[in-house]
Design a protein around this nucleic acid. Structure first.
Lengths: 211, 211, 211, 211
DNA sequence: GCATAAACGAGACGGTACGTCCAGTCTTGTC
DNA sequence: GACAAGACTGGACGTACCGTCTCGTTTATGC
């Protein structure tokens, strides 16, 4: 997950596994209470009952720590079969919005993205720890819709990847924008409007040639 | 724009108008060079040839200053008539993406949004200075499409507002997510795919009843 | 007293005389409440109901202002004839100590003396406004004692000046040191001890040849 | 000397002893060059090659730092046996005057005394670090004079203390006043006059009953 | 069982920026 | 031209964190 000093026959005192969990939990607590910009490494170490040195031994800085602390929140997203493509879309939209209602998630997500605009390594970390892992939801939803006959099969795997990416950007981007920028509620009514729009878009676009 | 010390009987030396422009320009320069997190008030004041106190007399802090400095960049967005709804959408998508390629815009936008998750006043400021002002593009595009007969007229002004908001969130959110989170290029090909999706969504959704 | 823009045919609005008194009184008040180091020009101007510009038009800075504000306190010292040299000494010692009990006098005196160690002009100002004016007390006391026959007449006016200076330094220095440095009370008992010492010193030294 | 974080179970990195010396030396240098009022904590820290926080970790402020920096100058005062009481007095007067010729001593001493008029803790610090330590000179000089038979022995230790305090105030106060307030030279001639006065005062007063 | 060696807590360290305060000057409009 | 008001530059303040360092202490393993 981080930088375990690899090597087989390690000697010396091993790193405390409990410390890791305590630190990540403390980081989430601090995010809730203080938000990104007021969160300090010293405060996290104090909450976790751990020396500051221990933090820096495991994470390079605030950004990396927060990405790890928040990433697993996103893994809780699931996609049960609601019987139709539109219902599945509505479900994922509402689930994601609920996640973004958690202060630690909303503040951390935008902050690390902001930092990542100037930090290549951080961008990769975010992508591998958060973004790419949630594309599974789109892949799963499409597969189900195709199995149901709601969407046509895509032969070309390259084009399929592009479509997945597009859908993911549309859903994730729109929900984030609605929730955090426009600061309007993401409720059932809105989710229905949005998923109707997206549904028609997918069906219509599928009929046309997409390069 | 900021906090003009209201009151009719003005007295004392008036605030320098030149200082305002110098400060905002210096802020944008510093954002380009340093990014959000490394930008400091002291550095901005030095670049602007202005005392730090002058900054604090006019803006409450870094967040407010940056919102104002960046807001006017967004005002440069325009929507010339490209002849069709799809062409108009593609144009605005590419224009917006080009704006997000500017370092000061990309880093500042996400950072202030991140801060705004814990700061009501900042959220309002962002909304009034940036978000609401750009909705004009959606309103204009829809009106043109309706004039061309590409989209039906919406009777209910309430529903019309909701649709405008939805379209705005979809376009802005998706482009931002593609550009900053997925970190993939927003080029003509992608813009064509996305606008096709959106076009079909709009047309299809227009045929159905939207509550 | 300060720097009156001399010249006969002055034009324009004349300086307010009331402002002067208000400023000096405000300065003394501020000294009592805040002490030397916390006293600010802005605060004085506000207390006096006067613009800061007006202060700077009349005094060069904090030091000069405070010297003027405090100097007149010292003019209140008097030396009524108590019938004997020792009684006169005791009286002046106690009077001076009482003056030093006033916060504005004690803090201001030492502070301006401290500043004057690096400022020739300030030293002169202190000397002319405070120190030299109080030597009158020593001169008067000696004259009375000589008239009473308690002290011999000094022929050489040069030597007489030196003796006056010495007595002045001994009395003023010792009282200040007792009151402000040793921070012990200057009461009747101590005044009696000190004046006895000084009396014997004067009588004994008068018998010997003083160069 | 300062605030050693007491407690037996010391932990953490110990404070650098070298830093202490460097800071005090830098403080004296800065006093010489800039004087009290222009001396800044930031400047001292820069001269000492030390972070500003290190200063504040050890001293509460400028006043406390300067007292400590100057106190040890006074410890250099000595009182070799010159053979007679008068010679000893002259020696100590001239030594003290020489010390007061050092810019760091003259400016710092008066400034901290001025500040101490509003700060109980600072007054105590000055007393323990400077004043009381130099009373040793008076005690020593009297003991020698008593051994020589120049002064009578004082039975009552209480009265002896009072006499010591009085002599100390007279010597220190008079020399300071001559040097810093009257701003006249303290040379051999003046020292002879003053010590003659004091000698006769001591001898004469000893013959009388002092309450 | 005892040395080795890394991890650990504590906290001092050199830095950097903060946001505030004050000095002293300048620019208005009013008296 | 003096004045009240208040914005201006400039610089120090004392605080808060950063990320590093240096201690003494603890805890695994491997000889």
């Amino acid at each position: 997950m981080r930088n375990p000093v690899s090597g087989p026959g390690r000697t010396g005192r091993p790193r405390s596994a409990a410390a890791d969990a305590a630190i990540l939990a403390a980081t989430r607590d601090a995010l809730v209470e203080l938000g990104w910009s007021k969160l300090t490494m010293g405060d996290v170490s104090a909450r976790a009952g751990v020396a500051k040195t221990t933090l820096y031994r495991r994470w390079a800085g605030k950004n990396e720590l927060v990405v790890d602390a928040v990433a697993e929140l996103f893994d809780a997203l699931e996609l049960p079969d609601r019987g139709s493509l539109q219902a599945d879309i509505e479900y994922v939209v509402l689930s994601f919005a609920e996640l973004l209602r958690r202060p630690e998630a909303r503040t951390a997500l935008m902050a690390v993205v902001a930092e990542s605009t100037r930090d290549e390594a951080l961008r990769d970390r975010i992508r591998s720890a958060i973004v790419d892992r949630q594309k599974r939801l789109v892949v799963l939803g499409r597969a189900r819709a195709q199995a149901r006959g709601e969407l046509p099969y895509e032969e070309d795997p390259h084009a399929a990847g592009h479509t997945t990416d597009l859908i993911f950007d549309v859903i994730a981007g729109t929900v984030v924008h609605r929730a955090l920028v426009s600061a309007e509620p993401v409720d059932e009514v809105w989710a229905a409007s949005f998923s109707a729009l997206l549904m028609h878009g997918l069906l219509g676009a599928a009929g046309t040639a997409t390069p």
